[in-house]
Amino acid sequence: MTRETTLDLLRAAAPGAVGAFNVIHLESAEAIAAGAEKAGGPAIMQISQNCVKYHGGLAPIARATIAVAEAAHVPIAVHLDHATELGLVTEAIDLGFDSVMYDGAHLDFAANCATTAEVVRRAHTHGIGVEAELGEIGGKDGAHAPGVRTNPSEAVDFVADTGVDALAVAVGSSHAMVERTSTLDLALIRRLDEVLSVPLVLHGSSGVAEDEISRAVTAGMRKINISTHLNRVFTASVRATLAAQTDLVDSRKYLGPAREAFAGEVAHLIEMLSGFAKPRDED
């Protein structure tokens, strides 16, 4: 299957959304592809700056992820997530990523605009889309204060000044949550969707209940980032297998079932975001 660009997937998503799932290791990349194939729908594989640090470099995990995406039988895009280092963005562009996210939310508005605009210039030269962030999203390294929201008028100026192709906005979600208790500002999402010409991105979706995510998609969200929730599914499976078979030494025998559980959850999430499955009640 020929890979699709992230922007093509997002443009085709309405009135649904595309799930963007983080790659941690090869098993998660394989699980995302398997889940997308099971659901018969597209997905975005994301590699974050934190993942790059874990692996000691971008190229090996990126090349493996791209290979898995290219072998899939459904449209899959490969995206660089939350990069604050410009060198990493350039490397991802050179490796052939379908899109990159430059996260300048830690900068003041003027500096964020100027730096993001330079990233857009570099990426667009290679036909690669750019996602940016405006209005810090809570929970990342404990640095973002709760209650932060993206200002619609600032968002309009930011998109116009930078030329970004998608915008991650702060609307009540928080990164790295292990409980799905966030309440989103749906009125703000609708307002941002009305005034912006680019797709909206929801980060920190692992902390948002499925019915709330569905409402956010209806309000205008087109890319839904989910990582921690899927890591919980994977880890729970590993724990269960090792608890049941305490003599296991072959890692494939516990990573394999975890990969299958991860894939099953990806399939459900894709179906839910596309409107083909109802949100599940939260435990």
Rank of each mutant, 00 (worst) to 15 (best):
H79R: 02
V148N: 04
C51L: 04
E131K: 10
A261C: 10
I226T: 05
E118T: 07
T115H: 10
I128Q: 01
I224L: 08
H268S: 07
E91L: 00
E271P: 09
G40R: 14
E194D: 12
V52Y: 02
P279M: 01
V74R: 14
G139N: 01
V195F: 11
P152F: 07
H79W: 03
P42V: 11
E91R: 08
A14W: 10
A236E: 14
G135P: 09
T162Q: 03
L192H: 00
G96Y: 11
D157W: 12
A105T: 13
N50W: 05
A62C: 01
A216H: 08
L202P: 10
Q245D: 14
L58N: 04
E136D: 15
R259M: 08
G41Y: 12
V217A: 04
E70V: 02
D211P: 06
G104Q: 02
N112I: 01
M1S: 12
A12P: 09
G87I: 00
A277I: 04
G138Y: 03
K278A: 14
I128N: 00
T115P: 11
H73P: 03
L186R: 06
L26E: 08
G127F: 02
E136R: 15
A117S: 12
L200E: 10
T162L: 08
V120P: 06
H124D: 12
V201C: 01
A114Y: 08
E4M: 06
E265G: 03
L86S: 15
T241Y: 04
L134Q: 13
G264F: 13
H229Y: 09
I128C: 05
A277L: 09
K53A: 04
D94M: 03
S237M: 13
H124G: 13
R259L: 04
D165N: 13
G207D: 00
I270L: 09
T6A: 09
P257C: 14
T2R: 13
S174D: 03
T246I: 09
V89E: 07
A92Y: 02
V195E: 05
T228Q: 03
D193T: 08
T84Q: 13
L80C: 10
K38E: 15
L273V: 07
I270P: 00
T183L: 14
G16L: 08
T162K: 06
A105P: 08
L107E: 13
P199E: 09
E154M: 08
E91G: 03
A105L: 03
Q46E: 12
A132C: 04
A77M: 12
I213A: 01
N112C: 03
G127Y: 06
L86W: 15
A123C: 05
A155Y: 07
L86K: 15
V68K: 02
D211T: 12
T218A: 14
V201W: 00
G147V: 04
G256P: 07
M45V: 01
N225Q: 12
D247K: 12
A111G: 03
D247R: 12
E154K: 11
I61R: 15
L192E: 02
A243L: 11
R180H: 05
G264I: 14
H175K: 02
P75T: 03
I44N: 04
L9R: 11
L202C: 06
H106R: 01
E85A: 10
S48A: 00
